Every structure is written in C-alpha cells, then in structure tokens.
Computed example of a mutant assay.
Amino acid sequence: MPLNQHYDVVIIGAGPAGTACALALQGSGLRVALVDRKQFPRDKICGDAIPSPALKAIRQLSQAWYDELFELTTKAETRNSRLVAPNGTEIVVQWKARTFNSPRLHFDQHLLSMVKRHTKTEVLENFGVKRLEISAQQATVFPSAQAAPLTAALVIGCDGANSVVARQLTNRTLDRTRQCAAVRAYFTGLSESDEQTSEFFFLDEYRSGYFWIFPVGQGVFNVGFGMLSAQIAARKLDLKQVLRHLTQTHPRLATRFAQAKQLSDIQGFGLPLGGVQRPISGARFLLAGDAAALIDPLQGHGIDKAVQSGILAAQQAVRCFQTHDFSAAQLFEYDRQVQTHIGKKLARSYHLMHFLSAKAWLVNGAFRFGRHPLIKNLLLKAVG
C-alpha cells in the first residue's frame, strides 16, 4: 500500500524510460511515484544491446551515475560490430564510444536500484494498472489489484510496447508496416565468437530484418531474429521456427552452433517502430520510450530513445509545474522536443530501411563499397 496516494508525477513502467525519467526528476522537489506491474528483477525480452547514446544521456545527468552503469558484473563491453551482407560481404566497425551488452534482467534492475538509492522516488512494484481517468483537476491511476487508486497532476506512460496509457488515452491502432516482431534465445558454446563483437546478418531469404549474435557476458550470447510484421504476416512465418532453421542449416551459421548449448526457450516480442508522428501527449499525460513508439526502424533497438525521451518527459514535467499548466496545448511542447531530438532521425531510418528491404543487391553493393573508409563513415552517419 502506498504511503502517500497523491503525487505530483506518477511514472508508469520502470524500464529504461521510466527510470531515466525518475533520475532526471531528482532534485526537482516534485513528489514522484514509479510503478511497475512486475517485481524486479524481471526479464525483458529483447536483443540486450545497450547503445552508447543511452549511456551518454545518463552521463549528462550525472558522471557518477554513468560510471556506476559500468559496474554491472553481467555484461560484455563491446568494441566492434560485424555486419554481414546477404552475399557474405563483411564490414567490421570499431566503436570509439564505450558501450556494452547486458541481459535486461540485470540492466533494468541496476537502473531501478539507482533510482532507489539516488532519488526520493517512491517505487511500487507488483502494481499493475487497470485503467486511467483524466479530469480537469488530476489524473487517476486505478490498479489492477485490490488497492486504492493513485492520483497525480501528471502521468508519464513508460509502460512499453503494449502500453496501457497509450491504449486508453490515444487512438493508436496496430499498423503492421510500422511494427516489427522478433524472437531471441540465450546460447553458450558458439564457435568463432568473442565477447567484444556484436554480429548482424542480413539474409537474402528474409529481407526487412536481420539475424543477430550479441555477447552478453560470461560466455553467453543473445541470439535472435526479427523482421517487419507485415512481411511476417504475408509469408505466414513462424519466427521461432525460422530461428531454429537458421542456427541449424544456414551455411554461415550452422557450423558455429554445432556445439552450442541453448540456455533458454525461444521467446518473442513486438517492436513499435518510430519514424511517423503520433500523439504522445495530451491533457495531464505523456508517453515515453516504447510506449511512444520510438524504436529505431533500421537498427531495431529503442533503449537509447527510451532514456532520451524519459529525460525529455522529466524536463516537460518541470515546465508544467513551473507554469501550473497541464493542458494538452502546454504538453504538446514535449511532442515538439521529441520530434526535434529523436523523431527526425527515426523518420530517416524508416525511409532508408523501407528503401533497402526489397533490394538485396543494393545492400550487397553498399557493403562492398562500405569497406572504403570514406564510404564507411557515410554509412555510419546514415545508420547512427
């Protein structure tokens, strides 16, 4: 039972967007609650890559917090990305900025522990949200369990791709052309792999997607495959079967998995792609992270955008309290900030992904010419 059932801000969802938002509100003087339907540590099914922009965003809040993230024991500090074209042409990229891969079971727990230790945020786990009501005076959050509702001046929805906040407070519908689906499992014992290299395989038989091998520390690898939901539906693909087939029969992959041991079941997840402007705010509410559909269409990850948008949401919350204005018009400034700092790049990524997805020959050519340092730098700028 919450100690105080009225807050200035209620953040729904304690993943990277929600925890970044809570960290960014530290020192604001606002009464903040961070709620999540799960008890941490909890697994979050994804590729487990933690891009350097996510870490840089935390660094802008606090150098000490940034340093603390690298104290994670279960991680692989990645230095390289190996990209393989459909015809087998390779590009190896050496990254200058520090980054790592870490199972979300551990990474998200670490972020939440930072919120508990460094802020006055009240954290409520096992707090599922059933519905929300918005009035002129406040937002009311009704829990799914038998408990008293929470009230707040502002609600920030950071509750993922299946966001309750987004479903109830916006008119969002499923668009398979703006949706990806993916599957992943953990393996050990892969050959020709190392803890410093993340690998991406673009396959002629499965366009508009890629297969990945990401080290996550202690000899474990996150192995997965994802592609556009529209293509999955059109071809009636079972992605779990596709992943098994690739690891067992693909000429560039099967030998590497010959002695591998699968540590977990194959599990699936959805990815709402960014690149189109959607309503992500309204009277007394904001959306951030996957709830705001901020997944990069080209790279397939969203943790950096989640952290960045969570911080932008915190900044908007402070502006609302400074002006005592929680209207849709005031909160639309957040939409503009997200579009400026995040949305424009996602739109470019979506158009580039759509352009390349049906043109394996063009991908092969880009990889061939991409070996030239100048062309490689241009490609890196295009994909981030």
Rank of each mutant, 00 (worst) to 15 (best):
Q267H: 12
G274H: 03
G275W: 05
A258M: 09
G274R: 02
R244L: 14
F269D: 10
P279S: 08
F269L: 11
H245N: 14
R256Q: 15
G274Y: 03
T247V: 12
G282R: 00
L263S: 12
P272W: 03
S264D: 04
I266N: 07
P251T: 00
S281M: 06
R252Y: 14
Q241G: 15
H250Y: 10
Q267N: 13
R278P: 09
T247E: 03
F269I: 08
T249W: 00
V276Q: 12
P251F: 09
L246Y: 01
G274A: 03
Q241K: 11
P251C: 08
A258G: 09
Q259S: 15
S281F: 04
A260I: 02
A254I: 00
D265Q: 14
Q267V: 13
F257L: 03
S281N: 07
H245Y: 12
Q259F: 07
H245F: 07
R256Y: 12
L253I: 01
P251W: 07
T249K: 01
A260P: 03
G274T: 08
R256N: 10
T255D: 13
L243C: 04
D265L: 14
Q262P: 01
A283Q: 15
R278W: 13
L273T: 05
A260C: 05
I266Q: 05
A258Y: 10
G275S: 07
Q259N: 14
P279D: 14
L271H: 06
L273N: 00
D265W: 06
A283F: 10
R256S: 11
R278F: 08
R252K: 08
Q277W: 14
Q267S: 14
T255K: 12
F269H: 10
P272K: 00
I266C: 06
L273R: 00
L273F: 04
A283I: 06
G268N: 05
G268Y: 07
G282I: 00
Q262S: 06
F257V: 02
I266T: 06
D265C: 08
G268I: 09
Q248T: 09
R252A: 13
G275T: 00
R278D: 15
R244H: 10
T247D: 04
D265V: 08
H250W: 11
H250N: 03
G274K: 01
S281E: 02
G268Q: 01
P272M: 05
V242F: 04
L271S: 06
V276S: 15
Q248D: 11
P251M: 02
K261V: 14
V242G: 00
I280Q: 05
S264L: 05
F269N: 07
T255W: 12
A254F: 08
G275H: 01
A260Q: 01
L246A: 01
A258I: 05
F257M: 08
L273Q: 04
G268K: 07
S281P: 09
R252N: 11
R256H: 15
L273W: 02
P272R: 01
K261N: 14
K261R: 15
L263Q: 10
G274C: 00
S281H: 09
A258L: 07
R244A: 05
A258T: 13
K261Y: 05
H245K: 02
T247P: 09
L253S: 08
A260E: 10
A258W: 02
Q277Y: 14
V242Y: 00
L253N: 06
T249P: 09
